[in-house]
Amino acid sequence: MEWKVYLSGEIHTDWRQQLIQGCQANNLPVKFTSAVTDHEASDSAGDLLGAEQSNFWRDHKSAKVNNIRTKTLIEQCDIAVVRFGNKYKQWNAAFDAGYCAALGKPYITLHDEDIIHPLKEVDASAMAWTQTPEQVIEMLKYVVNSEF
């Protein structure tokens, strides 16, 4: 079985690449998907529908266009990894975690200890909280390769 893993959240570090390389190095049968990680492309996704004078409506249209991808990939995944960084607030990641919870999709959170409190509800619905990409890789090794 090839596992479909959706990667959500923070886009300013290389955590996605670390997970991909770690799973490749361990020959895990995993296919990764993600939201658009180019910030400008994501912000302007709705511009193809016409220019807006208000930032609210520009963001609104872009969010809807982006959600076509996000909702589809979350619905198709076997497990999601939701990364929260310290530098920016990832409200979209919190929404993705909530969507996973509503769908009954297992997800793993990935964040530092100093933001446990603001993420307590998100972590409470997660299957696990991790602090490093290496911990996620170890979990995937166990879940994907364990035999009875």
Results as ranks from 00 to 15, higher is better:
T109I: 01
Q53R: 07
N145V: 04
E52A: 13
G85T: 01
G46M: 00
E10W: 11
Y99M: 05
K87N: 10
A94K: 03
D43E: 15
H111D: 02
I79Y: 07
M127C: 01
Q17S: 01
K61A: 09
K89M: 04
L110I: 02
T109N: 02
Y88E: 06
L7M: 13
M139R: 11
V81A: 04
I108P: 14
A80D: 05
N26V: 01
G22H: 09
C77E: 01
A51E: 14
L103C: 07
F95Q: 05
V136T: 11
P133L: 03
A126Y: 04
V65N: 06
V144I: 13
W57S: 11
A126I: 04
I137L: 10
A94T: 02
Q24N: 14
T72E: 15
N55D: 14
S54W: 12
E147I: 01
G22E: 04
S62R: 14
T70G: 00
D38R: 09
D43A: 15
A102Q: 10
A51C: 02
F84Y: 12
G98T: 04
A93G: 05
K31D: 05
L103G: 09
D38A: 07
I79C: 09
E52T: 15
S34Q: 15
G85I: 01
E10F: 12
I79H: 06
K141G: 00
H111S: 03
S125I: 02
P133S: 14
G46A: 02
F95P: 00
E134H: 02
I115M: 13
V30L: 05
D112H: 11
E10Y: 14
V30T: 05
H117F: 09
